[in-house]
Design a protein around this nucleic acid. Sequence first.
RNA 1: GUGGGCGUAGCUCAGCUGGUGGUAGCACCGGGUUGUGGCCUCGGAGGUCGUGGGUUCAAGUCCCAUCGCUCACCCCA
Length: 424
Amino acid sequence: MKIKAINGFKDILPDAALRWQHIEQTARDIFERFGMREIRMPILEKTELFSRSIGEATDIVEKEMYSFSDKGITMRPEATASLLRAFIEHGLHVQQPVQRLYTIGPMFRHERPQKGRLRQFHQMDVEIIGATEPQVDAELMAMGQMLLNSLGLKVSLEVNSLGCPDCRPGFRTQLIEYLEERKDDLCEDCRRRLSTNPLRTLDCKSRGCKALVKDAPSILKSLCNACNEHFAEVEHTLGLLGVTYSKNRFMVRGLDYYTRTTFEFITGDLGAQAAVGAGGRYDGLIEQLGGPKLPGIGFAMGMERIALLMEQQVENGIHKPSADIFVAALGAKASEYGCVLVQNLRSLKLKAAMDYSGRSLKAQMKQAGRINSRFTLIIGDNELAEEKAVLRNMQTQEQVDFPLNGTGVEQAQRLADYTESSQG
RNA sequence: GUGGGCGUAGCUCAGCUGGUGGUAGCACCGGGUUGUGGCCUCGGAGGUCGUGGGUUCAAGUCCCAUCGCUCACCCCA
């Protein structure tokens, strides 16, 4: 074999695709219960869209995007920016004060791949635009939890507030002061983070930093009144909705645009990747992108991470679909006959299959078993001569004679009726 | 960008200190059943041992290089 897929890009083979379909169908069903409408955007956007939303100085924008440098366009690294661009471009806010939108599709990031991190990955992304009420924050988390629970996954929800442009800078200054005084005890990475991204020290994995940061100033104690009230109401509503969660004041976001509520659905079962889904509020972002002054909140779930978790946490509850009828034909005449019959059955919406190779009946039966067919219709020269075929119920092993009189369409209809009224 | 691990059949893998590549499992094809699947049984097909070089009488095995995969760090959905 010569040509292989590019590193970090993965094929989703038929067995796995079944799982993906299940994930996606479950998600669409739940999203729509919450009034979300689907929106689909292109995969390519102007590079500027991401540098303005995600943050000019972030690693994502600086070195981890798939960009066509000569054209100023980029393969989207996340969905929120594209979705908001479409929202603003088409003035969706004038149609409805609050828009609930979701989108599902591939994203691209030029990072070294590892477990649960591919260069092409897939997200299910949800955004509620135009609502600032804390109940919406809670509702969104409840929806995420409902989805993960419906898939049979055990993950925990962690919630934090990052404050707003009024109160976050103050916290940031306090934190830097605290860390500067203890600089010598920080790990090498954190000493660097102190100048590049001080908040990141809060979720450093090193034991020393963890202990040190434990007594650092708390963002939750630095919130302004408005943010504090908002967060309290989010917690209250989560309680009302019966959502289990824990507060995590060390949770940090990598993207610049988040304000107030942020949350993550996390697990310990994905190696170094903890987050199955994550999101938060971004009350200034839409305006920053040249749109109306509207608040927003959303989250994204990683589909390969969900799929990995399901492999691990959920017994294989996904059954391969079965065919309704397999036509086993013996001889050229029977094969021709079966070919037409299968076509008629399919017109009647049955899943019908046959093998044209002219192999032994044994081999054909084996194939019928492999595709998990409910019935097999056996047609040979004898049957054609006597105008009746053998219809075998693959599960019960019962066989009945099936008359072949009437037109092809009539025969197909009789078969369809029979299989519908039988357990197989 | 940095560090570790691994490349043997379609897949999962044996292969000890160099001495003829596995009766290994799964999957595939065929026989046992002259026209009946799953279970069983017998047989079959399938490989440049990632690639290139070196050491050696002899390399899947040792050395060097290279490519690929993978996990982790950085970063982060």
